[in-house]
Design a protein around this nucleic acid. Structure first.
Length: 283
DNA sequence: AACATGACCTGCCAGC
DNA sequence: TGCTGGCAGGTCATGT
């Protein structure tokens, strides 16, 4: 379920249950997800206190008091849910374990964190906290779209000379970190830019215009995710992901929502993935 | 170097 | 009812 806004929403949901709490028990129910888990992961997690949670792109990082950082990626189908009662106010029971519950962390505040991932494209690793940023998976990432390093000059420079469609360029995590298929479609829709246009061929002015739009799209989604986060503790794990109404994504054949546009949303395939856009108003 | 494609997995849905 | 094919929010490794 995870592009940047969803990962951010998950991180915020986990924070009250994890930050400051000690992992009393770590159940690691299989040897790997996308890659093998690190050596003795369960032992290295057990007894560790979580100093804080961070997010980098689509990764969640849990800094531990053991000088290690737990790196988590949700892949395509990963979910992290909280059950139990971190505040200790109510009696509670944990729900029954489900298929694909690969890692389960019990915290000393009564919370249980369950990582469930049917497709197993997710990942976990343990890194030395001090050098976490230089981890192979993190060092190649471009700037955070909501941070100060993502700005007009950056995007214009990154697109320069690129012969690939702007859709693919925006999915390139080395250019900008955290966008995925949905929010790229949405950002291009709002910008009125055709996803087929070559990145290097779009005027600097239009590229610059994408910057605030990308920020807006992501922020809107975070706000929407946050609003459905109320019941996080009850842990359905459904964060209202598909409750947003997208303007382009998933709307093949439906009318374009841009004011005054009579077009409809088309679906094409670009580098093996679906792209949704309005042929009429996205140019 | 830049770019496109295949591969990794399971689950779900439409169509037959 | 059951089978089949296609599709899904990601991204790494491979080949041109």
């Amino acid at each position: 379920m995870p592009e940047l806004p969803e990962v951010e929403t998950v991180k915020r949901g986990l924070a009250p249950a994890m930050e400051g709490a000690v992992i009393t028990k770590a159940a690691v129910n299989r040897p790997d997800l996308r890659w093998p888990f690190p050596e003795r992961m369960a032992e290295r997690l057990t007894g560790a206190r979580v100093n804080g949670l961070r997010r980098r792109s689509k990764y969640i990082l849990a800094d531990l008091d053991t000088d290690e950082t737990l790196l988590i990626h949700l892949g395509m189908s990963g979910r992290m849910t909280v059950s139990g009662d971190p505040l200790g106010q109510f009696a509670h029971e944990h729900p029954q374990a489900e298929k694909h519950d690969h890692v389960v962390l019990d915290m000393d505040n009564g919370a249980r964190i369950t990582f469930n991932d049917p497709r197993r494209f997710g990942a976990m690793d343990l890194l030395e906290t001090a050098t976490a940023e230089s981890h192979k998976l993190l060092s190649v990432l471009g700037p955070e779209p909501l941070g100060n390093d993502f700005h007009e000059d950056h995007l214009v420079a990154a697109f320069k000379g690129r012969n690939t469609p702007v859709k693919s360029a925006l999915l390139d995590q080395g250019i900008i970190a955290g966008l995925g298929n949905i929010y790229v479609c949405e950002a291009l829709f709002r910008a009125g830019i055709s996803p087929r246009r070559k990145a290097g061929q779009i005027s600097a002015q239009r590229v610059a215009g994408l910057v605030p739009i990308i920020r807006e799209v992501l922020q809107d989604a975070i706000n929407a995710g946050g609003s459905s986060l109320k019941d996080f503790r009850q842990a359905s794990g459904e964060l209202g992901y598909f409750q947003h109404s997208f303007d382009a994504y998933g709307r093949e054949g439906e009318p374009c929502r841009r004011e005054g546009c009579a077009g409809s949303i088309a679906r094409i395939t670009q580098s093996g993935r679906s792209t949704f856009y309005c042929v009429k108003c996205q140019r």
